[in-house]
C-alpha cells in the first residue's frame, strides 16, 4: 500500500481528553498495513509530515463550537486566512507556504475530524459523545482509504 504513497496522519494530544481522538483513530488503522504517523505539533510541522506523500488522510479533533461527537469530513486546501493564535500558522497557511516555496505537496489531504467537548482538561478521558463516535470515525477513515485504493 505504501506504493500508493498514502499516509495516515493522526494529530492530537493524549493528555488532553478528546484531543487524543486523532491518535486513537490513527492507531486503529495501523493494523491495516498503512503508513501511519502521529504527532502533536501544530503549524509548519504539518509540512514535515506530509511532504512527499501523494495522499494524506488527516485524523484530528476540532473545536468549532458544534455538537460534540459530530464527525466532519473535508479536503484541506491552502489558505491565507491567518491563524487566531500568534503562536503558529494554521494548516491552510502551512500548505500555502509549502506550495509557494515549491515543496512536493500532496495531491489531496482529506480530513476526518470529530467535534470535541468544549472544555479541555489536562488528564481528562474522552468525553462520552466522542467515545461513542470513535467506531464511526474509524469506519469513515477506512472508507476514505478504500476510495483511494479502488
Amino acid at each position: 500500500m505504501s506504493g500508493n504513497n498514502l499516509l495516515v496522519l493522526g494529530i492530537g494530544n493524549d493528555l488532553l481528553g478528546d484531543d487524543a481522538v486523532g491518535l486513537l483513530v490513527a492507531e486503529a488503522l495501523r493494523g491495516d498495513g498503512l503508513v501511519v504517523r502521529t504527532g502533536v505539533r501544530s503549524g509548519l510541522a504539518l509540512l514535515d509530515e506530509v511532504v512527499g506523500a501523494r495522499r494524506v488522510l488527516l485524523v484530528d479533533s476540532q473545536a468549532t463550537g458544534g455538537q460534540p461527537g459530530t464527525i466532519c469530513e473535508f479536503s484541506l486546501e491552502p489558505s491565507v486566512v491567518r491563524s487566531p493564535s500568534a503562536h503558529y500558522v494554521g494548516y491552510g497557511e502551512a500548505l500555502a507556504i509549502g506550495a509557494a516555496v515549491g515543496l512536493e505537496m500532496p495531491e489531496e489531504i482529506r480530513v476526518v475530524a470529530v467535534e470535541r467537548a468544549p472544555e479541555v482538561y489536562l488528564g481528562a478521558d474522552l468525553s462520552e459523545p466522542v467515545r461513542a463516535a470513535l467506531p464511526t470515525m474509524v469506519e469513515r477513515a477506512r472508507n476514505v482509504i478504500q476510495g483511494w485504493l479502488r
Partner: peptide, 15 residues
Amino acid sequence: DPCHGCATHSLPGEM
C-alpha cells in the same frame, strides 16, 4: 506572541 491555550494543534487552525 501570546499563548492561546495548549491544545494549539486542534482544527481548525484558522478560526
